[in-house]
Design a protein around this nucleic acid. Structure first.
Lengths: 256, 256
DNA sequence: CGGCGTTTTGACAGGCTTCAAGGGCCGTGG
DNA sequence: CCACGGCCCTTGAAGCCTGTCAAAACGCCG
């Protein structure tokens, strides 16, 4: 795999042992059984530290590995020939990235880091080994894939059928909700590494109109967003504007 | 599972033995190994025959089974409180439906038959058994999930970033392409069970504008669409209007 | 201080939705 | 056999929503 455009890609640095994986501390994630943990330890070949802006998976390329996000934000996207960009969704800690490339031929989308990102590296050619030896983990991979599809489905509804204001409100609510589950929210405040251009490209809107819509949202005082800090002031009001709150995931979420 | 609104749901009819499964005749699908076939035979508990319009998976409900489409067309969709509908994608033969519901808690979308549909019924509570005993089949399930996500990704790009004309052209090209792989096209002609309302709901456009855009497309003479028959006249021209042809799937596609 | 990426604002054109109404096709029932 | 209703397709008109163009303000960093 190449890390073009990433001045700071540091493969083979210190690899955090899985026992101390930051993800294992998260209450929203399920625990590994001892033998699973043992297997995953051997499965993790490397750790990657990326700078913001680094594209670590590229549309059209073949990837030899798949990743789990250990920390930081990233986003999946596709671009058309003339440069139009569509952000498909955002990847946060505990999200798996690159499964499509691992299962199929080549990547059909790219992934870029928004913040400094730490990735757990899993070798693509051993994925089948995981399926053979640990069906429970294989099931978890499927769980993760199914959940991601669910998120995209909801996103599709937004872009297809929601008004501009609803779209913005829903996406912000969605991201806040996910970050909150991961313990990234303190006092209703969240470090938010997204620009309005990202928002626009995710929502299928122009930058200008995104900005004006966001302004309309801000005067409702349901949220505050200054600099890189996002603050939830009135979740109920925001959910109202979004046309409904986020559906809860009941089952215990796996990670690998 | 309930089959509300389906006057003709015929469970427990004659179940086609897997050896004679119509899908196995398709050259685009991979073969089962003998022991896989043996297992799948025991895994298939039933066969469901549905009428057009039957909703066989419903948003918000728990489903005890997942399905493989053996024949016919269906579509996945979500509706907002006020009735706005978004079609997420279309399901054709060899597509798996309901995996989200089988892996997670409850369905986040509904699925409705467009034509008479025959479904292969697989019990949800035995999915883990499949994962334990046949990692190769488990891998196939993941493959199918990954591919579906890929299709939705592309759809998301359409809705978010393509013009109305490009959207219509791309979706028609996409459906034609898939139907073609499945041997449903003869002489460039295809039985097309979709109304303009379906197109509109899939593309996130109004019915009126979909109609007018379709008219613009028809005068290019790249396609013909009369009654229930769709005919491809100039695929190159259509691909041009769509802003690119469909990316080919290289790896041999599995089905279960 | 200068440069660059991001955020803001205004103006304007046109794409798209909505409202409205008519036509065609087909199955049902008188 | 014909009338009727339902569903789908079609078309026109009006106006809002949204994209594009342009320019300026802001904030951050070397």
């Amino acid at each position: 795999m190449s890390l073009m455009g990433n001045p700071n890609g540091k493969p083979n640095g210190q690899v955090t042992p899985c026992e101390q994986c930051p993800l294992r501390r998260l209450p929203c994630l399920r625990e590994f059984a001892p033998d699973e943990l043992e297997f995953v330890k051997r499965f993790k070949t490397d750790e990657l530290h990326l700078d913001p802006g680094a594209t670590f998976l590229r549309e059209g390329s073949r990837s030899d590995q798949l990743f789990t996000v250990l920390s930081g934000w990233a986003f999946r996207y596709k671009v058309l020939d003339d440069g139009r960009r569509q952000i498909l969704n955002f990847a946060l800690p505990a999200d798996m990235v690159g499964l499509q490339g691992a299962v199929m031929d080549e990547m059909e989308h790219s992934v870029e880091a928004l913040t400094p990102v730490v990735l757990c590296v899993l070798p693509r050619n051993r994925l089948y080994e995981l399926y053979s030896q640990f069906p429970s983990l294989a099931f978890d991979v499927t769980w993760l894939a199914a959940r991601e599809e669910q998120l995209i489905d909801e996103h599709l509804v937004s872009i297809g059928r929601r008004t501009a204001l609803e779209r913005v409100a829903y996406l912000l609510l969605h991201l806040y909700h996910r970050a909150s589950e991961l313990g990234m929210v303190k006092d209703g405040k969240l470090q938010f590494p997204i620009t309005q251009q990202h928002l626009a490209d995710a929502l299928g809107m122009s930058l200008v109109h995104t900005n004006k819509t966001l302004k309309r949202l801000l005067v409702t005082k349901s949220i505050r967003w200054q600099g890189r800090t996002f603050e939830m002031l009135d979740r109920g009001a925001l959910a109202e504007l979004a046309g409904g709150d986020i559906p809860q995931t009941r089952s215990r979420r796996p990670f690998i």
